[in-house]
Structures are given as structure tokens and as C-alpha cells.
Nucleic acid binder design. Structure first.
Ligand SMILES: [Mn+2]
Ligand SMILES: [Mn+2]
Ligand SMILES: [Mn+2]
Ligand SMILES: [Mn+2]
Lengths: 213, 213
DNA sequence: GTAAAATTTTAGATTAATCTAAATTATGAA
DNA sequence: TTCATAATTTAGATTAATCTAAAATTTTAC
């Protein structure tokens, strides 16, 4: 695994996370996500292909190497988040931005020893699975809140974003991983839901929030 | 404290470490140390001065802010080295290059919590003092091996470089911090010395090695 | 099946960080 | 003091990563 610049690494992670079921995405989607100009993305796509990180010159599909690089970055990111919460007593909403930097530290030895010390964690503080050394991810049968059936009991296993503003909102509402919940009401016209948490507390969520569950 | 690029941070650290008793150094010394062309250094010196990190436009003297930045980088570097050895079981010769990357991670919260977890270490794994939050360093009365008196007993407190090749050499010779030693012979013509370690083992050191003690 | 709209690419510029080669400035030994 | 050598700066180029504006291409809508 070569030592790519953090700019290149961030492009690869972004492309990975935006890929649809066919494994592809678009210049404009990447530009939007990175808040970069499409012209800049177009230029970078050419360079990523030259580095062998993209399958195709014109289509935005990760090559085998690109895919592995993405998964290894996600592995490092989630291991560091786990470390920060478990060892340095950070809160779950504090760790993402720091892990965005730490994931670019290049050291095979460090990447090997961090999970040993943490005793091979399988999930990060946001309930997201940590890819193994080879980049494999477990098959999760998690259901997004927007697809939950009314009155069916679920367990809160993960959040779909670990941005601090969203997590702070969950904290304010008293939501935590591991809680049991069910949807008691579902508004079709605006996608909002009413939840019963731990069988004793009611919370209302807008569709925007529900989508990140 | 603004968020400088790691290139700028590395220049500031280099200038700091090269400064003489008058607090100054030269373009050519920095170029030599960083293995850069003097023209590149000259160009960077102008930019560092524009950023307020150098006292003077033409003389290579750190400003108050430049000096503090350097000390805070050294603090982070040595805290990370301590963390790697104490927590992740790294050996003292393995940590410098990783700390060179970790010291550029910018997070006031992390810089605050790392020393709390480590219980405010005063020295790094190489015996080098860790500056406090404000950048203050303790006054050490350490004596370099080259200035040691013959037959006087000393304790091995620190090394002057933490590059892995030098530390591997010390490992091979069985040298460790905390050991007692005295110079039993000193060759004036080549600066080499003969040491008695822990009163039972003899080692010969060239002047090159002695200078890094 | 065209035409408008959206998307992508190209062209040209900019900034940080580097280089080589040339010009300038400083040092210092005779 | 003077002139050779050393140190530094300037000039011009290069590469990565970005931008804006314009051109080209693809998609969608009628
Ligand atoms: Mn994260
Ligand atoms: Mn996470
Ligand atoms: Mn070090
Ligand atoms: Mn050290």
C-alpha cells in the first residue's frame, strides 16, 4: 500500500461512501460532498486513475486497490474513534474530526498494534462496524429508522453519521446506543415519526433526523 | 494558535533546534538539516516572517509566537512518544517517525487529554524533558558524554537523538536509560571513550556516538 | 428527434512548496 | 583594502491542489 497524500485519501473515502450498488458515483456528487468545484474533481479523477485507484478513466468506479485503500482508511478512522472514547474518555460527538486527521497517519506498526491494545473491537463508538485487516466488513442486518414498522420493537445499534451536530442533538434527546425503541406513529406527509424509547419515553423525530438513524 | 501546515511546523521545529545561544541560526544550516535547497529555505523564511513566526525579516530568529509553536510541537511529539511506548508497547527506537506525524494532528482537546491519561509525564522515552502546557522546560544539569570526567560516576539520563539507527546501536550494546557509568579511558586524538557500565561491563564508543549521549 | 438543461471537461490562473541556475551580498584572509 | 569564496536571494520552472469561465458532452423533456 503506497503512501498517498491525505487529499487523495479523502477523495477515495468520499468516492467509496458515495458509491451506489453498482459501485459507482458521479463527479458532481463528489464535488458536492467535498464542497469542491466539479472542475477540481474532474482533474483529480484523472490523477486517481493514473495512480490505479480507479477502475476506469471516465467512470467513477474504485479499482481493487482503491477499494482496499478506502476500507483501510475507514478501519483506521474507526479504530482511532474507539481509542479516543475508550482510552482518552472522549464523548462520541467529539471524536470524528480528530479521527479525520489520525486516519492519515501512516504506520503499519501502529495500525497493527492499536487494535491489539483495544482487543480487536468490532464496532466504533457510533455502532459502525470496523473493517478487519483485509478490509472485510460484517454483513449487518440493520434497519434504518425510516423503514421501521410501526409497533415492532427494535434496538438502537448505530447512527448513519458521526458529525458532532447530529450527535449533540441525539444527546439532547437522551438517545443512546443499546436502547430499545418502537415507532408508535408515522406521519406520511412529512416523514416524521414518534418513537417510544425504552418503553417509557416519547420522542418526535423529523424525517431529516430519521434518515441518519 | 493558528493551524499551520506541517511543512511550516517542521521548519519552525528545525529552526528552534538549530538556534544557538543568541537564539539564531542560518539559512544554510536549515537547508542542510531539512535536506532542502538553500533557495527553498530562503523563500520559506520570507513566508515565516510574513506569518509572524520570525522576529526579523533577514535574521533567522524565532518570534515569541514561533518559539511557543516550536515548544508545543515538541510537547506533542514527546507526549505521543511516551504514549506509544507506555500504552502500545512500542520500543524506544520505533516511536520517533510515528511521532513526527502525530505531532501535526491539531486538536486542543486531544493535546489536553493525552497528558492527563499519561499522568503528566515529565520525560519522554529517550529521557528528553516534555515542555509543559505553556512551553516551559525544566532546567536540566545533564552532562554530555564528551564532557564527562574520567572515573567520575554518572547516570545515563537521556540521548541527544532519537533516530532509530542510533537507538538500535545502543540496544545492540546493551545501553539503557538509568544505567550507571563512568569513563575509564579517553582517547584525545580521536575523541573515542571506554566506558564501564553498571560497574561490570566495558563498552567502547567513537566520538560520533559519544556526541549523541 | 431536437432543444434545453445538466453534467463534465478543458483552458488558464493561483498558491504552497519545491527545484536549478544565475545574480547579489557578505565574510574574511592576504 | 581588496578580491576570492561562501552564503543568500532572485528569477524562472515544476507539481499538487485548487479556482473561474468557457467549451463540450450527456441527459432529459417535449
Ligand atoms: Mn467518524
Ligand atoms: Mn464513527
Ligand atoms: Mn522523537
Ligand atoms: Mn524523544
Amino acid at each position: 500500500m503506497k503512501n498517498e497524500s491525505s487529499t487523495v485519501e479523502n477523495y477515495i473515502k468520499t468516492i467509496y461512501s458515495l458509491c451506489d450498488k453498482n459501485g459507482k458515483t458521479t463527479v458532481s456528487a463528489v464535488a458536492e460532498r467535498l464542497q469542491n468545484n466539479p472542475a477540481s474533481v474532474s482533474n483529480m479523477v484523472r490523477r486517481l486513475h493514473e495512480k490505479g485507484l480507479l477502475e476506469n478513466k471516465s467512470k467513477l468506479i474504485l479499482s481493487k486497490e482503491g477499494n482496499l485503500l478506502a476500507r483501510q482508511l475507514i478501519r483506521k478512522h474507526r479504530l482511532w474513534e474507539t481509542f479516543l472514547v475508550r482510552v482518552l474518555n472522549f464523548k462520541w460527538e467529539e471524536v470524528h474530526d480528530i479521527a479525520e486527521q489520525l486516519e492519515h497517519v501512516h504506520s503499519p506498526l501502529l495500525t497493527e498494534r492499536l487494535p491489539v491494545f483495544l482487543e480487536y473491537p468490532k464496532f466504533d463508538p457510533h455502532g459502525d462496524p470496523i473493517p478487519d485487516k483485509k478490509g472485510n466488513l460484517p454483513d449487518l442486518n440493520a434497519i434504518p429508522l425510516t423503514e421501521a414498522e410501526v409497533d415492532q420493537l427494535y434496538i438502537f445499534r448505530s447512527v448513519a453519521t458521526d458529525k458532532s451536530d447530529f450527535l449533540n442533538y441525539l444527546n439532547k434527546k437522551g438517545l443512546q446506543l443499546g436502547q430499545k425503541w418502537k415507532v408508535t406513529e408515522k406521519e406520511e406527509f412529512d416523514g416524521s415519526v414518534k418513537l417510544l424509547i425504552d418503553e417509557n419515553r416519547e420522542v418526535y423525530f423529523s424525517e431529516t433526523v430519521a434518515q441518519n438513524f
